[in-house]
Design a protein around this nucleic acid. Structure first.
Lengths: 359, 359
DNA sequence: CTGTTAGCGCCTTCAA
DNA sequence: TTGAAGGCGCTAACAG
């Protein structure tokens, strides 16, 4: 069966006569390719002398192993997928950065897919993740339709969701304690004397937006503050959503003295609109955001916000995925805390002292 | 030499008896794997009837071709690398998003690598790009040390740089016309009556920061405005850089009435610091940013900024890379325009009317 | 502990 | 136009 040793030379762009592959290294180091492979993979049973020769050869040739081939041979792609809603919302880059760092620390590469709230786009993204044979996927979209992830689940790819997800093996949840931070926010406002508090929510189709809204209503109740439906407006988690939300508030017959927002982008939109119509923050209106993104602290005034740690989120996500992949008894749920960061967008309600009402 | 047909069963996690690979599809469609491959790759010579059968089989089995294997077989990874400085600077996500969109439209996947201004991190990132066998890399870091990209160049991987880069085949440049937008900015200030104009630069190690600074000085000269070295302060392209830059300006014996900033993050930092010490914008101090990131327009006051189109940048980068990869006479340079967007952070200098100086 | 060798899943020439 | 079969570069039994 020995066939003519056809000098391998397909149309591919071979630079020199021999390709810079594991064979070249093996030749140079005078060992077998298996030894080279073992050395690269840091398998401890390799003779130190040989290993040194191998590394030297690698160095000299400037050899870089081909990840694709490695993945094919080993059956492990070494990639984690990360699905986010919208990369242009500053919350996500901060999350992505941390996720990437942690993933790399753990020997994984990441493949990012941003859905932009578009199911079609999301489906394509998932298709790509599938094709690249990701070993696990963190879906940090905060509530987009889960049916779309069915394909991933079908292939038994470990998954991490935020808040809620199917109760099946291979799936973990990052349970965010919205209630805690939001309660702190409402209590903070109540302590300042606010009784007229509104809420600009995210899209109610998003579970996370619902949770925040619910947490707000509950906190209001706990403080014995009346809920005014008119002051519960729905936006989306963008600047525009905040601006439109504020416009809705402006239309109210009577206006709230404080507004809690479902995320910082909304809060910034609200703030912007407020100034635009001459409402001063915090003297006329107190505002609380959610997420505590980086720019929150340099807004004018610096935004009081409920912080949700991107670091904790990313850490937990990678940790969960890794546990699933390696079979190290992954947890079903990972708790993520939230807490209030008080800055200057909240203050006493107007007229709290001496009824000085702005005209 | 015929060896026992060992039922393929390495430790790998095979789900069922047969893997869901191209063979399964071929079997189901009653064709050879070659035909399946051709069908998937949309090679026109495939009989329509067969193709239909193949697609049906693919659909039924929910088959997804393995990109890794495909890459190995074809020698094309289908990936483009994108190196950015700092994913948490809002300028970059806007760029990344567009780059990704365009890349996908053109059949490429992207691999992002953010350097965080850290050479070590950058080297690791490049290593990863190499391992993944990217077909081209856009280095949109605006000026980090190029020697680090030697490895990419050595392997003849098509490269795109911003502003400057080695003049070699396979390398294109995105030439940004900083001068135009910055001149507009300075002229705008001059027209308002400003004669005392300072500049908060980015790190001068960055070519793009130098270019902006140079463009500023040139524009000043063109307007016949005196350059005051004390008012040229160096920062970095972050919020902190802006805050520190403003602190340096505050230390000056006499203060400028307007400040041009090397990017929006600096401008926002400056704005923040200014308010912090009671300087009003734009009545006491006019500020111009650069980049025109999304949040610039919702700052208080909305930031006047020199816009550099992320869309144009991303489009040109992918276009250049694609031209190189496919050998379609790529251009050496692609021009990117900049222009001023006037908002409310610029106004007449203090005392322009009736010498009303704030105490 | 090292070397030999059979795949991994696909692409692509080659012969039919 | 289709099918058969040899790589692509690497990993991981298996035998020594």
């Amino acid at each position: 069966m020995t066939r003519a040793r056809t000098l391998k030379s397909r149309q591919k762009s071979k630079q020199d006569s021999s390709t810079l592959d594991i064979h070249a290294v093996a030749r140079k180091a005078n060992v077998s390719i298996a030894t080279v492979s073992r050395t690269i993979n840091r398998i401890p049973t390799v003779n130190a002398k040989l290993a040194k020769r191998v590394w030297a050869a690698i160095d000299e040739l400037d050899y870089v192993p081909d990840t694709q081939a490695r993945a094919l041979g080993s059956g492990r792609s070494g990639m984690l997928g990360l699905v986010v809603s919208e990369i242009t919302n500053p919350f996500f880059p901060e999350l992505i950065q941390r996720f990437e760092d942690v993933a790399i620390e753990n020997g994984y590469e990441i493949l990012i897919s941003s859905t932009n709230y578009d199911p079609k786009r999301m489906e394509l993204g998932i298709q790509r993740l599938l094709q690249r044979k990701v070993e696990g996927v963190a879906i940090l979209t905060f509530g987009l339709e889960q049916p779309l992830f069915q394909k991933l689940a079908d292939r038994k790819i470990p998954l991490v969701f935020v808040d809620v997800g199917p109760d099946r093996p291979g799936i973990s949840l990052l349970k965010i304690d919205y209630a805690h931070g939001i309660r702190q926010g409402v209590q903070h406002l109540a302590a300042l004397g606010h009784r007229k508090i509104g809420f600009v929510s995210g899209p109610m189709a998003l579970h996370s937006a619902q949770s925040r809204s619910t947490a707000f209503l509950k906190a209001l109740d706990e403080c014995g503050i009346e809920v005014r439906p008119e002051w519960q407006v729905e936006g989306d988690h963008t600047l525009g959503g905040g601006i439109r939300g504020m416009e809705r508030i402006l239309d109210c017959s009577s206006r709230p003295s404080a507004l809690v927002c479902s995320n910082d982008m909304i809060a910034i939109g609200v703030l912007h609109k407020a100034y635009h119509v001459g409402i001063r923050v915090p003297s006329d209106l107190s505002i609380i955001g959610f997420d505590d993104i980086q720019i929150a602290k340099v807004m004018f005034p610096p935004l009081t916000s409920v912080q949700m740690s991107r670091i904790d989120l990313a850490n937990a996500a990678v940790k969960a995925l890794k546990a699933h992949i390696e079979g190290n008894n992954p947890l079903r749920e990972y708790k993520i805390d939230t807490h209030l960061v008080v800055r200057q967008s909240t203050d006493y309600p107007p007229g709290a002292f001496g009824e000085k009402k702005p005209s």
